[in-house]
């Protein structure tokens, strides 16, 4: 009990645990633990044969955090910014440091704009987005959808109904807006 000085007695001794659990105490000595101490200065340890790495060519303007002194010598080149979402992303990087909530909120907003832009763009390709196959829900029937959920004390079941709303909701909203727009145009033409 915390109300007196003694530590609570243990249910099992170290000898009992060593006998029951393979490897118990193998790293009891902190010197056996590879991340102790946290920082261990040894610049030769990692196999780097440079003091500063060669610079990767910047073949297009690369957005970067304004907390960096310069573009890092190596950087990722996946999915360059594009469209309206790209404009928002570049602004977020150019204007706000990582310490500002605006930086992250703009990037999150750009992600949503990117998804809308990309879905719309897919409809003029030979492979339009398919929310049925892309959400993977086709796996449901063959992977115990009822037994995995019913009769289980799963805390996530409380918000499970929100998932389809989040996935299908924007599609229904967009479809409704398109329908309303088409109706408005038809009405205007008939007049």
């Amino acid at each position: 009990m915390p109300y007196t000085a003694d530590k609570p007695s243990r249910a099992e001794s170290s000898e009992q645990l060593r006998a029951r659990i393979p490897g118990w105490g193998a790293d009891l000595d902190p010197r056996m633990r590879p991340s102790v101490p946290k920082e261990r200065f040894d610049p030769g340890l990692n196999g780097a044969h440079w003091e500063f790495p060669d610079r990767q060519p910047e073949t297009r303007p690369r957005e970067r955090s304004i907390e960096h002194a310069f573009l890092t010598p190596v950087f990722g080149t996946s999915a360059p910014p594009k469209g309206l979402s790209g404009v928002i992303r570049r602004y977020a990087y150019r204007r706000f440091s990582e310490g500002r909530a605006a930086h992250w909120l703009l990037l999150l907003g750009a992600d949503r704009v990117d998804a809308v832009e990309s879905h719309l763009a897919s409809f003029v390709t030979l492979r339009p987005d398919n929310p049925i196959t892309e959400t993977g829900v086709v796996a449901e029937p063959s992977h115990h959808p009822v037994a995995s959920r019913v009769g289980q004390k799963r805390a996530d079941l409380a918000h499970l109904p929100l998932d389809p709303v989040l996935v299908v909701g924007p599609w229904l909203l967009a479809g409704g807006l398109v329908l309303a727009g088409v109706r408005a145009v038809v009405r205007a033409v008939r007049r």
């Binding site: 200065f41 990692n46 960096h68 990582e98």
Partner: peptide, 29 residues
């Protein structure tokens, strides 16, 4: 992803490398 030679890599903090993530200083790559 880490360079092996920056301030952080030289101290074993490979996950905090400063030479590989242009987008953020708060996380490695």
């Amino acid at each position: 992803i880490y360079c092996g030679s920056c301030y952080f890599c030289a101290r074993g903090l490979f996950s905090n490398c400063h030479n590989v993530n242009a987008n953020a200083t708060a996380v490695g790559a």
